Simulated assay, not measured.
Amino acid sequence: MDIARVPFGYFKGEPVTKYVLTNDNGVQAGILDFAGLLQSFKVPTKDGGKADMVLTSENLDEFTNNGFCTNRLIGRVAGRIAHGEFKVFGKDFKLEQNEGENTLHGGTNGFYNHIWHVDSTDVSDDRASITLSLTLSEKDDTFPGTIHVTATYTLDDDDNLTLKFAATTDSDTIFNPTNHTYWNMAHADAKTVDDLTLQVNSKYHLAVDGGKIPTGEKVANAGTPFDFEKLTRLGDALKKMASTKENGFDDIWEVEPSLTKPVATLEDKASGRKMELYSDRNGLVMYTMNSDDKAVYNHGQVHPHLGIAMEAQTLPDAPHHPEFGDITLRPNEEKTYTIKWHVEY
């Protein structure tokens, strides 16, 4: 096990550092202190090289010059909050509206727009970890209360990368973070995720309005393009979504939370590379990068459906739908959430 430190450019004039966690099998996770960004997740290949499981770049500007939150930590609250307003414990709050009249991914000054403090790094016989922290006040991001968040990435010798969030606050607030990494473990020049296969432990997805805000209705997946109960070729599912406004998925699945049984499995049969996703929360937002925006996504390439974001979280807009889950955070309370990825190669 090893952790190396590599300079990785500048953000708003401040230096950014990449921390490369390497296990004894040669698996590597590159973590930036900027946005807690998962810059790379490399695995050994059969020819003795390494392949990245995620969309990546060696240039920080190629992560920061688009609005797609590529591979960053997201919060305080991931996803959309309808009308940028919510009520918690009888108090009404109004947030910055940064997507029309809604609040998206914690607003323009959320987790994804800061250099985090590196609290510690640790290496033992079978694991390496890094703990990042960030403190935001209401003046920073318009959410109530001052929140202190830690995010600990741990890579172990069983080829698991685990991300544990923990948060405390000095005032009633809400907390529902995620990681916004885009995956594509196919061969390096694959232009889409079409040939990947996906399985999701889900029976329902959420109905949404034109602004992608959940209506509260849960729709059965069976018989729809949202049905990934069995491993399904993504290209086949995406073809069924070609006539939609999005030309792909930007949608929400209700999943069975588990840190022992995969919430979702993404696989490239040609290479044998596979990622299993575990989460202790009930929501999975998947976005198939439907845009052909000229922002750079992956070593200078840009194609619709080049990657798939798999955002594990509590079902979005929970303050307006209490049945979706409790994302409140109160003083003298610590709330933790865990996401885990297991890779095979």
Rank of each mutant, 00 (worst) to 15 (best):
S137W: 04
D140S: 15
S120Q: 15
D122M: 12
S129M: 06
V118W: 12
N102Q: 03
N102P: 03
T135Y: 03
N109F: 05
E138H: 10
T142D: 13
R127Q: 14
T121V: 13
L136C: 05
E138Y: 08
D126Q: 11
L132V: 05
I130S: 06
H114N: 09
A128T: 15
N102R: 01
H117E: 14
D122C: 13
T135I: 09
L136F: 05
L132S: 07
G106Q: 05
G110V: 03
F111M: 03
E138A: 12
T142Y: 14
D122Q: 14
I115A: 12
E138V: 00
I115F: 13
G110N: 02
T131L: 13
K139H: 11
T108V: 07
D119S: 08
D140L: 07
L132F: 10
S133Q: 07
N109Q: 07
A128M: 10
G107T: 01
H105K: 03
L104I: 06
I130A: 10
D141K: 10
D122Y: 13
L132A: 08
T108L: 11
N113M: 02
A128I: 04
D122H: 15
N102V: 01
H105W: 02
Y112T: 00
W116Q: 06
G106P: 05
D126A: 10
T131K: 15
F111P: 01
L134N: 13
H114W: 11
G107E: 04
D122I: 01
T121R: 08
E138K: 14
A128V: 12
Y112N: 06
A128D: 12
S137R: 04
Y112E: 06
H105R: 02
S129V: 02
L134Q: 12
G110I: 03
E138Q: 15
T121D: 08
W116K: 08
F111Y: 13
G106V: 03
D140Q: 10
G106Y: 03
S120V: 05
G106A: 03
V123N: 11
T142L: 11
E138L: 02
L104M: 10
S137M: 08
S124T: 15
L136S: 03
S133L: 08
S137L: 07
E138N: 12
T121N: 08
R127V: 04
T103Y: 02
Y112Q: 05
D140T: 14
R127I: 01
T121G: 09
S124D: 14
T142I: 09
G110W: 06
G107P: 03
G110K: 03
T135S: 12
E138S: 14
E138W: 05
I115Q: 10
T108R: 13
D140W: 04
I130Q: 09
I130K: 07
D126G: 02
H117T: 11
G107H: 01
N109L: 02
I115Y: 14
H114I: 00
T121P: 08
A128R: 10
T103F: 00
S133R: 10
W116R: 07
S124N: 15
D125L: 09
V123M: 11
L134S: 08
D141E: 15
S133Y: 11
D140E: 14
G107L: 04
N113Y: 01
